[in-house]
Simulated assay, not measured.
Amino acid sequence: MAAAVLTAIFQGSIAVLIFTRSDDFLVSLKSYVEEHSGVMILKLAGGLCVVMFCLEWVVLTVAFFLKYYAVVEGSGSDFNGGFRKTAKVGSSEEEMGYLPYPSAGALNV
């Protein structure tokens, strides 16, 4: 989660740099691309960075609330890390029905 937050912060800072310093960057680059076209390309990349920044924060917020509600709902008298254990672990032979392989008891010779 911390890595995702840092990635989102860096993505946002790159977007801000692209929108504020694209002209200066292209002048110092001495590229074969025209300055107007280069600025347009950088602005499109900056827009993509902004979209990714927003999506990352939406996903992080949803993940936080899902984890929060899992902890709140699972925090009864026996706190088990925030998650309820609802999966059925064991079952009897009657419930399992026909097995396509021999049972463990039949293998003991």
Results as ranks from 00 to 15, higher is better:
Gly38Asp: 01
Ser31Gly: 01
Thr20Gln: 14
Ser22Arg: 13
Tyr101Thr: 11
Gly74Glu: 08
Val16Thr: 12
Ser103Met: 07
Phe10Trp: 13
Phe10Lys: 14
Met1Asp: 11
Asp78Asn: 10
Cys54Gly: 06
Gly97Gln: 03
Ile41Ser: 12
Gly76Trp: 03
Thr86Ser: 12
Glu34Pro: 07
Glu95His: 13
Arg84Thr: 02
Gly82Ala: 13
Phe83Met: 12
Gly97Cys: 02
Met52Arg: 10
Met52Cys: 07
Leu48Ala: 12
Thr7Pro: 02
Phe83Arg: 10
Ala2Thr: 14
Val50Cys: 13
Val5Asp: 07
Leu29Lys: 00
Ala4Gln: 09
Val71Gly: 08
Val72Asp: 03
Pro102Lys: 05
Met1Arg: 06
Glu34Asn: 03
Tyr101Trp: 12
Val59Leu: 14
Tyr98Asp: 15
Asp78His: 13
Ser22Thr: 05
Phe19Ala: 03
Gly74Gln: 10
Met96Cys: 04
Phe53Thr: 06
Gly81Asp: 04
Met96Ile: 10
Tyr69Cys: 08
Met40Phe: 03
Ala45Tyr: 06
Asn80Met: 06
Gly12Asn: 02
Ser75Phe: 02
Ile9His: 05
Glu56Met: 14
Pro102Met: 07
Gly38Val: 04
Ser103Asn: 11
Gly47Pro: 01
Gly38Met: 04
Gly47Leu: 04
Met52Ile: 02
Glu93Cys: 06
Val58Trp: 01
Ala45Pro: 01
Leu48Asp: 08
Ala106Gly: 01
Leu107Cys: 03
Met40Asp: 01
Gly76Val: 00
Ser92Tyr: 05
Gly90Val: 15
Gly90Lys: 15
Ala8Trp: 00
Leu60Ala: 01
Arg21Gly: 11
Ser75Pro: 04
Tyr68Gly: 03
Glu35Met: 10
Leu42Trp: 00
Lys67Phe: 05
Gly82Ile: 04
Gly90Ile: 12
Thr86Phe: 10
Tyr68Phe: 11
Leu17His: 14
Ala70Cys: 09
Ser92Gly: 08
Gly105Gln: 12
Ser31Ile: 06
Val109Ser: 13
Phe10Leu: 14
Val109Ala: 13
Ala63Val: 13
Ala2Met: 10
Ser28Trp: 07
